[in-house]
Nucleic acid binder design. Sequence first.
DNA 1: TCGGTTACCGAATCTTTTTTCGGTAATTGA
DNA 2: TCAATTACCGAAAAAAGATTCGGTAACCGA
Lengths: 119, 119
Amino acid sequence: MYQRKTPEDLECGITIAMKVFGAKWKPCLLDAIQRGFRRPSEMHREIKGATPRVLDMQLRELEASGIVEKCQSTGFPLYTEYTLTDVGRSIMPVIDRMNEWGLGYKELLGEQSLQSISL
Amino acid sequence: MYQRKTPEDLECGITIAMKVFGAKWKPCLLDAIQRGFRRPSEMHREIKGATPRVLDMQLRELEASGIVEKCQSTGFPLYTEYTLTDVGRSIMPVIDRMNEWGLGYKELLGEQSLQSISL
DNA sequence: TCGGTTACCGAATCTTTTTTCGGTAATTGA
DNA sequence: TCAATTACCGAAAAAAGATTCGGTAACCGA
C-alpha cells in the first residue's frame, strides 16, 4: 500500500479544480458537450486527438464527480447522452477562458515554436 | 522511438493551455508568485503538498514557456526571484477562476466526499 | 443467423509525471 | 576550516495516466 509522503492540500481551490477537471481530455469533453456533442460516438469523432477509450474513462470520472449526467435509452441503436449538471455548467466559464488564453498564446508564438515547447 | 498514434490538436486553445500550465503544480506556482512568494525557498515553504524538486522543475518549464522570468543576484545568501511576464500575468484570470471554482465545489461537497473522489 | 451500429469494459503495455535520494556550487560568519 | 543558507541538478524508482487491443452486450434488418 502506497502512503503518499506529501499531503494533499484540499484547502486550495486550484488543487481541487485540477483534480476534478485537470486531466488531458476532460476540458475538451466538457467543451464538446457544451457545443452539442452529447453522444459518446459524437465525441469520439469530434475529439480527434484522443482514443475512444480514454474519452469513455474520463467521461465516467466526470460523472462520478457530478460534473456530467448520463441518460441512456434502451432503444436501437443504443442511445446515450451526457449532459452537464449545474455544477458542470459552472465550470464552463473557466474552460472558456482556458481556450481563449490558449488561442491567444498560439497567436503570440506561432505554431512552430509551440511544437518546440516540449513540456 | 515512440510515434504517437493520435495527432496533437494544436488548433485547440484548451489543449495548448493544458500543455503550458496544466501540470500538477504550475497553477499553484503562478498563484504563489502572484501572492508575493517569488523566491524558490518561499514557494517551497508555501506549497506544502509538493516536493521542492518538482517545483523547481515546473518553474523551469514555465520559464521556458515564457510565463515567468528569473532574476538572480550573485550576493549572499543566493537570491533568486521569479516574476510573471506579461504573458504570465494574462494567465492569472484563468487561474483565479479555477481557484474560485474549486473552493465553491468544496463547499458544495464537503471535504470528506472530496477525498473519496479518487480520480 | 450474420453483419452493422452503439456503448461500453478489462488487461497489458507504454509514456509521462512525480518522488526520492543524494549530490554540487556560491558565499558568509563563527 | 566548517556549518549554514540558498538554489539548483541528475538519476533511479515509483506512481499515475494514456493507449492499444481485443473483447461483450443490446438490438435491428437483411
